[in-house]
């Protein structure tokens, strides 16, 4: 059967590409769209580094095939800041609260937190922890990340 043609929007830009069915959305974004802000950690759905928005829903892009995103609107970390480069409230709070160290997990955390706060603008501490439990960080110890998302919620 070979390649399949897909049409989708990535950060507001319409694209049409022929892809192998086995190409994951994460690899499509990184290698075909050159959007390498989406990071790949575990590639089997555990670490959350590859989180992107598909039609507004936060998903693991390593567990979505590019062909499954045919027709969808995809937002990656590159599409979170304003077009003029102004950081989103979540991004600004990560900078202010030391929510990142090496930065590898950060795109996934920012995208997850963006979806989390959109659906629940005033989360309790418990809701925040549960909501961020699907993203792994190996250097900050999470306290800075939690503080950042809390500050972003307060900045609302």
């Amino acid at each position: 059967m070979g390649e399949v043609e897909i049409s989708l929007s990535v950060n507001g830009h319409a694209r049409t590409d022929a892809v192998e069915p086995r190409l994951t959305l994460a690899d499509y974004l990184r290698e075909r769209c050159q959007l390498t802000g989406t990071h790949l950690g575990c590639e089997h759905g555990v670490c959350g580094a590859c989180t992107v928005l598909v039609d507004g829903a936060a998903v693991r892009s390593c567990l979505v095939l590019a062909v499954q995103a045919d027709g969808a609107e995809v937002t990656t970390i590159e599409g979170i800041a304003a077009p003029d480069g102004t950081l989103s409230p979540v991004q600004a709070a990560f900078r202010e609260c030391h929510g990142l160290q090496c930065g590898f997990c950060t795109p996934g955390f920012v995208v997850s937190a963006t979806a989390l706060l959109r659906d629940n603008p005033d989360p309790t501490d418990d809701e925040l922890r549960v909501g961020l439990a699907g993203n792994l960080c190996r250097c900050t110890g999470y306290q800075g990340i939690l503080a950042a998302v809390r500050r972003a919620a307060e900045a609302g």
Partner: peptide, 26 residues
């Protein structure tokens, strides 16, 4: 059969499973 893929894709990515065809009913 492929629906949401949240169990199947990890198995395919790890090559714990392989199929000649996926039928997407999602």
């Amino acid at each position: 059969v492929l629906a949401g893929g949240q169990s199947l894709l990890p198995m395919l990515n790890l090559r714990l499973a392989y199929f000649d065809h996926l039928v997407d009913v999602g």
